Amino acid sequence: MAWAQSLGKEMRGFAIEGTGSYGASLTRHLQGAGQFVVEATRPRRDRMAHRNDGKSDTKDALRAAKALLAEELAVAPKQRDGDVEALGTLQVWRSAVKSRTSAINAMRAVLVTAPDRLRDQFRGATNVLIETVLPASPGNGLDASILRALRQLARRCKSLTEEIVEADEEIDRLVRRRAPQS
C-alpha cells in the first residue's frame, strides 16, 4: 500500500495474480484496507497475441494494470475464510495418505531384501502388528538394523493413519455442516 501510494497516482484498485495462492496474503491485506482487488487474468486474445513474448513479470504487470484501468478484469478473488477454504486446508493435511503409502512401500522394500528367516517371519504381517510385536532390537548386525527400520516405519504408518482418521472426521464434520442433506 505504501509503495502504491508513493507513486503519487490515484489508486483505482489492484490486479493481483494468484489471489487464491501466492497472492492470497496480499489480497487479504489490500481488501482489509478497503481496496478494490481483482484477479489478474489475461483475456484469451491477449494470451494469443503475446504467446511468443515469453514469461516476463514486468510485461505481465503492465498488461494487468492496463486491463484493470480499462475495466477488462472482472474476476473477484474468492473469499478465503469460510468452510470451503477450511475443507481445502484439511485436504492438504489429509495428503498424509501419500506419506503413509511411502512408509508402507519402504517396509516392503526392507522385507524384500531381508534374509529369508526375517522375511518369512513377517510375511503377511500388518504394520500395526509389526509395530506392537517387534521389540526394540539392541545390537549392530543386519537383523537388528532391519528390525529397527521395520519398527520405525511401522510407527510412522500408525501415526499417519491416526492423522488421516482425524482429518477425515474433521472433513466429514465440515461437509455435514455445509451440506446437511448429503
Rank of each mutant, 00 (worst) to 15 (best):
M1Q: 10
M1G: 14
A4W: 08
Q5S: 08
Q5N: 09
L7T: 14
L7F: 06
G8I: 09
K9I: 09
K9T: 15
K9P: 04
M11G: 04
M11P: 07
R12Y: 07
G13F: 01
G13Y: 07
F14H: 01
I16D: 00
G18R: 03
G18M: 12
G18N: 09
S21T: 15
Y22C: 03
A24S: 12
S25Q: 05
S25N: 10
T27Y: 04
T27W: 00
H29Q: 04
H29W: 07
L30R: 02
L30G: 00
G34Q: 01
G34H: 04
F36A: 09
V37M: 04
E39C: 04
E39N: 04
T41N: 09
R42V: 09
D46T: 13
R47P: 02
H50R: 09
N52I: 07
N52D: 05
D53T: 00
K59L: 13
K59Y: 06
K59R: 12
A61H: 13
A61C: 15
A61K: 00
L62S: 08
R63L: 07
R63Y: 05
K66F: 03
A67L: 13
L68R: 02
L69I: 10
L69M: 14
L69N: 08
L73R: 01
A74V: 09
A76F: 06
P77E: 07
K78D: 06
K78P: 15
Q79S: 10
R80S: 11
R80M: 12
G82I: 10
E85G: 09
L87F: 10
G88V: 06
T89A: 14
Q91V: 14
V92A: 10
W93H: 15
R94H: 11
R94L: 12
S95E: 05
A96M: 08
K98C: 07
S99I: 02
S99G: 15
T101V: 14
S102L: 08
A103Q: 06
A103R: 02
I104R: 03
I104G: 00
A106I: 00
A106Q: 09
R108Q: 14
A109Y: 03
V112Q: 13
T113K: 11
P115W: 08
P115S: 10
R117I: 14
L118R: 09
L118P: 01
R123H: 01
G124N: 14
T126W: 00
V128P: 02
L129G: 14
L129F: 07
L129D: 12
I130R: 06
E131L: 00
T132Y: 08
T132V: 05
A136V: 12
S137A: 15
S137Y: 00
G139F: 00
G139D: 03
N140E: 03
N140K: 04
A144S: 12
S145A: 10
S145K: 03
I146K: 05
I146F: 02
L147C: 13
A149E: 05
L150Y: 04
L150G: 06
R151K: 15
R151E: 07
Q152M: 06
R155D: 08
R156H: 13
C157Q: 00
C157G: 02
C157E: 05
K158G: 14
K158F: 08
T161K: 06
T161C: 13
T161A: 14
I164L: 11
D168Q: 14
E169K: 15
R173G: 14
V175T: 10
R176W: 06
R177L: 15
R178K: 12
R178L: 15
P180S: 13
Q181P: 01
S182G: 04
